[in-house]
Amino acid sequence: MPYKKTELKFNGKINTCEIGAGDAAISIGGENTLLFLGDEGFKPAVGIAITDSPEDWSDCFTDIFGDDLKNPAAWAKAAVEKSGADFLLVKLASADPNGANNSVENCVATVVAVEGAINVPLVVEGCKNAEKDAKLLEEVAKALEGKNVVLFSAVEDNYKTIGAAGGMAYGQKVSAESSVDINLAKQLNILLTQLGVKSKDIIMDVGSAAVGYGFEYVASTMDRIRLAGLGQNDESLQMPIITNISGESWGVKEAVSTLEDAPEWGDQEARGIGMEVATAAACVVGGSNAIIVRHPESAKTIKSLIAGLIG
């Protein structure tokens, strides 16, 4: 019998979400099949990450960016240029009340400077303290009104503030963060929409882990979310997925061990890139519509992987 293609039947569609404004705007999502299987060529976007506190970042970043590491705006510009990334994420780690406890005003100033230095969409990551992030991301939303940035991320404990400010008052996009669990992802999306945030303004951050470190849960969570959104047409799970794998990938032993710690493992920078590229590629085929990495080389590789897959 001649070959006949077996199609997985889907009746749902992932929302299209535009991020950034004007010339810099890009759109993510929109697919109605698992990524890379349809002919439509929906293209995941690749983002590059920077932070306002690079102290614990690997030495290779000092070699690449030099003094720019001390100046987020200059670093942002260099990071986009060197990586060719589609968008940029800036993490405001300094805001952490259990760390440097930098003020909201200072952090907002940093973000405004970063935004002015680049011509790609911006994702603003808080410090992962729910209370502080609520204040911080609210002020960021206000300061960057009209720029259509992504507030990364709202969690169960602060979604009201971030949702109201971001998605509603100042017209930004809200990333909804859950911890590798389809039900939690669904629940937070529902809470946000009930609050009044339009579902097209929500992006899901469903959690991540480095490959080898519980990644099976991430892979299966993404599979289940996509099959629910596409196969069962579950509207509360049809938001595009955004995944920041940079911290996890560069935080595990394989990337952190120096050549001195593990001489047999060889070049440390190559190991960090390896962890990052493998983790990012796995997320992208799993259905992530926007993937965030740290190293310019990783960004280039994932961009060409995506270009290859789309053909």
Binding site: G212, A219, W265
Partner: peptide
């Protein structure tokens, strides 16, 4: 090792 560490780890997970 830059290829083996991530890839064998991923395979073990999946």
């Amino acid at each position: 090792f830059n290829a083996a560490l991530p890839l064998f780890g991923l395979r073990q997970n999946i």
